[in-house]
Nucleic acid binder design. Structure first.
Lengths: 74, 74
DNA sequence: TAATATGTAGGCAAATATGCCTATATTTTA
DNA sequence: TAAAATATAGGCATATTTGCCTACATATTA
């Protein structure tokens, strides 16, 4: 198993999240509103700027109607 | 798809993490040392007290040598 | 091209996680 | 049972995330 550092992991995660958000037809703003998140958070997460919580990712998966494991499959 | 609130999710996640930690033969202390985490964090995560980051979970998966998706499979 | 929609950048205060610490409880082993 | 190992509880200072905000950049559409 290959080691992946935190920064590379967060960037890869964000890229994958963005892919699935678009596949489900959400803009960052729409997703943020449904989640009652601030819109800036979605942008920060997708760019790998911040290391968000597993609870937030679970909430995102619920709104996107995808299995949470899909968001970690990259 | 069933809605799972943050608290229930964190508790279920922690329970599953504990299961996989034990399957791999780690104590909380051993895991914390390898991760350079404080030991109290492992206990807090496994009990669902805190909502830790995806980066931390990735680091844990690396140390346990499990696919990160396994930790979200419950 | 021009207008509109979508996303990025960054400052700041408040909320939350984290590390470090001591003490206590629970579980496992001799 | 007694001792040792493992896990829980909680306080406190520091670090990080988050929401709210304004401004700017990029992409999409008329």
């Amino acid at each position: 198993m290959e080691y992946i550092d935190d920064s590379a992991f967060l960037i890869a995660f964000g890229k994958n999240l963005r892919k699935h958000r678009k596949l489900k037809g959400f803009t960052q703003a729409q997703l943020a509103i449904d989640l009652r998140f601030d819109i800036s958070q979605i942008s920060r997460i997708e760019r790998g700027i911040i290391n968000t919580s597993i609870g937030n990712i679970n909430a995102i998966a619920n709104i996107l109607k995808v299995d949470i494991k899909v968001l970690f499959d990259f």
